[in-house]
Design a binder for these strands. Structure first.
Lengths: 240, 240
DNA sequence: AATTAATGTGTTCTCAGTACATATTGTATC
DNA sequence: GATACAATATGTACTGAGAACACATTAATT
């Protein structure tokens, strides 16, 4: 077995020069947005013949001189212009035939952003927000990746103050509850929801009221300072 | 931006033939065991000059015709002879310089196995169990990987019946509690622990007693049928 | 037979989460 | 301007998991 370990190391060195070990690695970003009470995801038209007419996640190959964690940030900045976004690594997918052009293993990240804060580059009309609930089929294994990310998002939002990345700075409790209901796919009791949220001490009452609403305006809140993490994806930079 | 997408696909195709995109991908396995009230991990002596005298996790490059998820199973079988093990994907690590021999991105898995059930290959004296609490430094970024896996293990054991993979088939509640205390790094109240565990309905009372213990023997239990998953790592095979 | 050191079990308390009803406020309608 | 409407705002009782805590039981040792 010791021999095997040596072989392994030798193989790593050779892999830089031999086709045999050539496996590409990419990142794919599930970019969530929220608008009109709908959870949305940013997709781009696939340009592979195999997937004509299908949409796909935003992704790119990891560059040789780029940290893995840096790649999704780069993709996001290239596509949306956004720099400071919430990003989280979710899972790495590597079935042999998941990419028709060759062997590509991909690490999936999800990101949460406020759609209204930044308009998409107008030059690119192949880039659109899609309602998550309308998505039936995607290119590659991207539907599976999307599903995995949604599940992880659902598991996290009650414990961690992350959904606020999807909302404007000021929001009402009703807006917040709508968002939770949309992500979790369930209806929540208004009184209990308020209690749970206020108990967590995530919010600051701004002593302001909603404007331009049809009925009685609600109070406005914002996320408490210090809770907005740019990313949960930098485990690799943390102290060991 | 549309152009960029085309470039991306072209790049994927070229990457199979060009050195420029040559990034190797490996898997590393954090193989946990438990013996003498100590959480252990299986390590191998590193044979890289850069890491002389240091230990490292068991890993290998992913093969071109091998699903990513299959790689850690192969590594485990090669190293330990074990086939049916609990395996879970944890995180993918890809800092540029994490491997001295070249650019290698690695996906980390952890595994839980019962040390006594299978002796290690005697041929390989560079392969040993180490107490997790004694480990200070490892080769590569393997200490960080280990820490990440331990944290994930801690997060999971109260909700999911997985630690039983570390125990013999029959065990007493005291043994189980010792194991939980060792993994979590805390002391637990015996009465509350029993209540929490029995409430989950994971265990079957075997109506047998411990033998060869110095004092009053305790009852023996086993994991209920149907709860022992071989793996939680096959997300990619699940229904989308 | 007495001692020891473990196993085995029950009660109370706290707190988060759930179920549920009524008062209040601003808008829209007549 | 009075009324209806539709949303916001808030309080109370119930349930169940988890934590704090004390005493009886059993088998091995002396």
């Amino acid at each position: 077995m010791q021999k095997q370990q040596r072989l392994k190391t030798a193989a790593i060195e050779k892999s830089i020069h031999r086709d045999f070990f050539n496996i590409a690695i990419s990142v794919d970003c599930v970019i969530f947005g929220y608008e009109d009470r709908q959870l949305k995801v940013l997709l781009i038209k696939s340009d592979l013949a195999e997937f004509e007419g299908l949409w796909s996640l935003l992704g790119d190959l990891v560059r040789p001189n780029e940290d893995l964690e840096a790649a999704p940030y780069r993709v996001l900045q290239e596509r949306t212009g956004l720099k400071d976004v919430y990003l989280e690594q979710v899972h790495t997918f590597g079935r042999i035939n998941r990419h028709p052009s060759g062997r590509v293993i991909t690490t999936a990240y999800y990101s949460l952003m406020n759609i209204k804060d930044h308009t998409l580059p107008q030059t690119d009309n192949e880039l659109h927000w899609h309602n998550v609930s309308d998505i039936k089929k995607l290119a590659f294994d991207h539907k599976l990746i999307l599903t995995t990310c949604i599940r992880q998002l659902q598991d996290k939002i009650m414990e961690h103050p992350i959904v606020f990345n999807l909302l404007p700075e000021k929001f009402s409790l009703r807006e917040l509850q709508d968002l939770y209901e949309e992500i979790l796919g369930v209806e929540l009791d208004r009184r209990n929801f308020r209690k749970r949220i206020t108990l967590k001490n995530w919010l600051v009452d701004l002593n302001q009221m909603e404007e331009d609403v049809k009925h009685r305006p609600g109070k406005l809140y914002k996320l408490r300072n210090g809770l907005k993490r740019k990313s949960g994806a930098d485990k690799e930079l943390a102290v060991s």
